[in-house]
């Protein structure tokens, strides 16, 4: 994970000159602040341990596989949020885009070649991403509004589209079902898609010019523009990438859920924002990374299982979910800011 303040090691060197004993608590805190994913992993482990105590024996190979399967779509969508948040934006159209591509795939594959269906399914994703990018990058519309607006339009289009295919029915391509739910020697097949994708995102953010530009734009947009960066190009490329990722998530998710509906991926949108924030990405831009987001998505998935197992009424579960998201984010900010 990238650190916001590269001079963070300085206090260490000053303490080396004046060797005053540092209390253990402070040292632990500082260690965690230098490695922001450590407290997140600890939290994840604590949650799993609680789960194991409440339901002894639940934590087995199958459960882990299932958790990973359900965490992956959330993690990819949270990746869209991470990248857009790095520039100070947000992409709330990911749910609609994922639903659209899933629904179009499932209905088109009935009569079309899978490859053609795939291309048709990705078309709205690219289009919505392009519109988002132009709106945010060229016209400077607030990303929240822009992506909400395009998601509204997308949902409308999908409903109109549904009328035209109501007779032909839908089916889930075997390949997607295999990818979404299949398990090969203990590992969910979805990892075949997710691991390269995650590696690509992490690599792009940390090592390529495009990734650096995202951080730069989010950190100080004016300075970035003055140094000759074409702001609108970066933003347009970013929102198209985000939308395409969301489209791919939709295809993966339909393979997992196996029931195409018009609100398939909508419930994932707000949790994807929460996963990115829990993972330490600043919603104001310039700070964060994808590793934390993945752990954030895992935490949210385990948390959902935990709340389901407690057999509380639906209302109490939502209350707890909200409170925990808030508490984790607040505690995490405290730890990271402490240096």
């Amino acid at each position: 994970m990238r650190r916001a303040n590269p001079i963070a090691s300085h206090p260490m060197s000053t303490t080396a000159i004046t060797p005053a004993p540092i209390p253990l608590g402070r040292r632990v805190k500082r260690f965690m602040a230098d490695r922001p994913s450590v407290p997140l992993i600890i939290l994840l482990i604590i949650l799993v341990v609680i789960l194991q105590i409440l339901r002894p024996g639940i934590v087995n190979e199958r459960w882990i596989g299932n958790t990973i399967k359900f965490a992956i779509p959330l993690a990819i969508l949270a990746g869209c949020q991470t990248m857009t948040m790095l520039t100070g934006g947000i992409d709330l159209s990911v749910g609609t885009v994922a639903t659209m591509s899933a629904f179009i795939m499932a209905t088109q594959v009935v009569n079309q070649d899978p490859a053609v269906a795939f291309l048709l399914a990705m078309m709205p994703a690219v289009l919505i991403g392009l519109v988002n990018g132009i709106g945010v990058g060229v016209f400077r519309v607030h990303p929240l509004i822009m992506t909400l607006g395009t998601s509204l339009i997308g949902t409308g289009c999908l409903q109109v589209y549904q009328r035209t295919v109501i007779a032909s029915g839908a089916k889930i391509p075997d390949f997607l079902a295999w990818l979404g739910t299949g398990v090969t020697s203990g590992f969910p097949n979805a990892l075949l898609l997710f691991v390269p994708l995650a590696a690509l995102i992490v690599f792009t953010l940390a090592r390529t010019g495009f990734g650096r530009l995202l951080y730069a734009v989010g950190d100080n947009e004016r300075a970035t523009r003055l140094s000759g960066v074409q702001y609108w190009q970066v933003i347009t490329a970013l929102y198209i990438t985000s939308s395409v990722l969301a489209g791919i998530t939709g295809l993966l998710y339909i393979g997992l859920i196996k029931a195409p509906s018009l609100s398939l991926a909508e419930p994932l949108v707000l949790p994807s924002v929460a996963a990115a924030v829990i993972g330490g990405t600043s919603i104001f831009g310039g700070r964060g990374g994808y590793t934390g987001t993945i752990i954030g998505a895992l935490i949210l998935t385990v948390l959902t299982t935990l709340l389901t197992i407690l057999q509380m009424p639906e209302g109490a579960r939502r209350i707890l979910f909200g409170l925990i998201v808030l508490f984790v984010t607040a505690a995490y900010l405290r730890i990271v800011e402490e240096r």
């Binding site: 707000l270 929460a274 919603i283 909200g322 998201v325 808030l326 984010t329 607040a330």
Partner: peptide, 14 residues
């Protein structure tokens, strides 16, 4: 908490 307003009100939404 100094958590961004978007996140706090999102949590409150739940």
């Amino acid at each position: 908490t100094r958590v961004p307003d978007i996140v706090v009100t999102l949590a409150m939404l739940f």
